[in-house]
């Protein structure tokens, strides 16, 4: 194949095979080769495709220095960039819908925790996770201002991250906590158990209320009990069968349990910067998430509430994400005012 037709990567590989080294020196292309190795055709290619080669080398250099934690959901835009910590599952996609609703002018980076990729190990302390994110953010964008966001249990990491960045002199315009769980420092397990049981009971009560007759309600309850029993039987049977491990699911499970343990251990300390707390709905104030407790460490926090039927688990997904994006705009508009 003619050298003219081959992609830059292949051209460079062809050169490398002949021990011809090519590198960028600002806007110049430099080349070091064994005497005689640079044929006229190679020279012509290097000259004619100089810009193309420089672009490739620049991209390769950037990729080599990349910060794995910074996942650009939307890298364009002129507004203050948002760096957002997902919940305990660590999925950067959590913010995809919200980012879309915030538009093309709002840079939005999800933060991928160590351990999410299945290669590195998950970190065991919220402070360490926040430190890791802080380093990656500063490497990626050395100067602020930043907006730091967090969802669910990731809110604690976001809170800590904002403090670390602030302590290092970076300008953190605002910390936005979406449906945050307050770390259950005192009543760890009982509170979580209560929270979980209550949400279950409420969900069942809602379903029962939808049934028009007593018979239909009875059918629903018995059907649910039956399903639960069947699940238990299946689970019991599956215990006896060898399980084929899925590395992606395994790493997620490990990250999840480590992140939850880190979250439970975390004790937030007072923060004087601006904090906006976006709750799925007003009922969330009475939930086990203990949202009001954030006022102990962020006494000036502002609260914003989503629609009555918005649920915490899906508040950042469509269709709820649009209302939550509106709340974000409102919160940051105040900031600009």
């Amino acid at each position: 194949m003619s050298l003219r037709a081959i992609p830059v990567a292949e051209l460079l590989a062809t050169l490398a095979a002949r021990d011809i080294k090519v590198w960028a020196d600002d806007d110049r292309l430099r080349c070091n080769a064994p005497a005689g190795a640079l044929t006229a055709e190679f020279r012509e290619q290097l000259r004619d495709r100089k810009d193309e080669i420089l672009d490739f080398l620049s991209m390769a250099a950037t990729v080599a220095r990349q910060q794995p934690a910074i996942v650009p959901l939307q890298s364009q835009g002129t507004r203050t960039p948002i760096f957002a910590v997902p919940g305990h599952v660590g999925a950067p996609f959590t913010f995809s819908d919200l980012s879309k609703h915030l538009g093309d002018d709002q840079p939005f980076y999800a933060l991928q925790p160590s351990g999410y990729d299945g290669q590195s190990e998950p970190m065991e302390r919220v402070e360490d996770i926040a430190e890791y994110f802080a380093r990656q953010i500063v490497e990626y964008q050395p100067a602020g201002p930043y907006i730091i966001a967090g969802y669910c249990s990731g809110a604690s990491t976001a809170f800590e991250l904002a403090k670390i960045l602030g302590q290092r002199g970076a300008e953190v315009r605002c910390v936005v906590l979406f449906g945050p769980l307050y770390p259950p420092t005192n009543e760890k397990l009982p509170r979580l158990a209560y929270f979980s049981a209550r949400s279950h009971v409420e969900a069942i009560a809602r379903e029962i209320a939808k049934r028009p007759t007593f018979a239909a309600r009875l059918r629903y309850v018995s059907g649910r009990l039956g399903n639960r029993l069947r699940d238990l039987v299946i689970r019991f049977r599956e215990r006896k069968q060898p399980v084929v491990a899925d590395p992606v699911l395994e790493s997620r499970a490990r990250l999840k349990s480590t992140a939850m343990a880190a979250f439970r251990r975390y004790i937030p300390m007072p923060y004087s910067g601006r904090v906006c707390i976006v709750l799925p709905n007003t009922d969330w104030l009475r939930s086990g998430a203990a949202a009001r407790r954030w006022l102990r460490v962020a006494p000036h926090a502002d609260f914003y509430f989503g629609p009555a039927n918005c649920r915490a688990a899906s508040m950042l997904e469509d269709p709820e994400a649009s209302a939550i994006a509106e709340l974000y705009r409102k919160a940051t508009k105040k900031l600009n005012d």
Partner: peptide
């Protein structure tokens, strides 16, 4: 490319360098 480009030269003998 980035992973492989940092190696030492394979060949001995005189070399030439050009700048574009």
């Amino acid at each position: 490319w980035a992973a492989n480009s940092g190696g030492t030269s394979l060949s001995e003998g005189p070399r030439e360098e050009i700048e574009l």
